[in-house]
């Protein structure tokens, strides 16, 4: 319950944060809202040399828009994200997904960037980022770069953010007309992590699905897209069509087994939840 001793810095700019990170060496740890890191520290499952607290860097806090995207500072809290008018208007899937994360107190501290950079395979927001083709702005010693969602999530708790880098912001494409969204989260208790989650975004044309994006939570080391189902969904106009396309939802995934769900059951859930998520996104269920 008592963490190991560590140093602590609270930089006020991204450059200061990068400098702290560099000075701290390989055991330096970035803290966003700390809601994933703190339990790990308390259980002494991590022993950072320095904690670089990025929760008070102005550039990393807040939500703005440009013509095509809603841009969210990485240190913006879940609570701010899910209640933000721009997010609710232009990126409703993200608002919906975020409202399922943890509980109100944790959402007051936890940050979007923290959750995405932590990249827990059972985390919800990576699936929103995948389904929405979000873009990640990463700052490092040699400058800044932008990474697409499909390249951002690398492996268990591993992203494109290097050890000397910081996730600064995430840009979500604005929803255009015709798109519908839904996140279907399945967990044993309200507090538990998603056993499986499915984020669906579909564009309807003439009562048929013209384009579908389906991202799966906790079906692989990272959130993954159900690409064969996405392809099969094009042209679907009934729940029966959607159910047929959803049969392939777990193709190419590699779900784990634990005491709450084994791989076989997760694969089954992926199909059922994909059907339900797409059905609701398409307003057909």
């Amino acid at each position: 319950m008592i963490p190991v001793a560590f140093d602590y810095t609270q930089p006020s700019t991204v450059d200061e944060a990068l400098a702290s990170l560099a000075a701290g060496g390989e055991d330096a740890k970035i803290m966003g809202g700390g809601q994933s890191l703190m339990p790990v520290l308390r259980l002494r499952m991590a022993a950072p040399s320095v904690v670089v607290d990025c929760s008070r860097i102005d550039e990393m806090i807040g939500i703005c828009e440009d013509d095509t995207h809603v841009i969210i500072g990485a240190a913006t809290t879940h609570h701010a994200v899910m209640n933000d008018p721009l997010v609710k208007k232009y990126v409703p899937l993200l608002a919906e997904v975020t409202s399922t994360v943890a509980d109100p107190a944790i959402r007051h501290r936890g940050t979007l960037g923290g959750a995405l950079a932590h990249a827990d395979p059972a985390g919800d927001q990576p699936s929103a980022a995948q389904a929405l083709n979000a873009q990640f702005l990463i700052a490092g010693p040699s400058g800044r770069r932008t990474v697409d969602a499909k390249d951002f999530f690398v492996d268990y708790f591993t992203t494109a953010v290097g050890p000397d880098e910081i996730l600064v912001s995430v840009a979500f494409p604005k929803q255009s007309d015709g798109w519908g969204y839904h996140y279907e989260k399945f967990s044993r208790t309200a507090q538990a992590w998603a056993m499986v989650g499915v984020a669906a975004a579909v564009r309807m044309e003439g009562g048929k699905i013209a384009e579908a994006r389906v991202a799966l939570t906790n079906m692989a080391p990272t959130s993954v897209r159900a690409t064969s189902t996405e392809a099969a969904l094009v042209g679907a106009s009934t729940m029966a069509d959607i159910a047929a396309a959803s049969v392939n939802a777990a193709d190419g995934t590699s779900p784990t087994s634990d005491i709450h769900a084994d791989a076989e059951y997760r694969a089954h859930l992926a199909q059922v939840l994909t059907k339900r998520a797409v059905g609701k996104a398409a307003a057909l269920s």
């Binding site: 208790t189 309200a190 005491i259």
Partner: peptide, 11 residues
């Protein structure tokens, strides 16, 4: 308590 699932108000 993350693995031993005591029901919350929603459960």
């Amino acid at each position: 308590l993350a693995d031993y699932l005591i029901p919350s108000s929603m459960d």
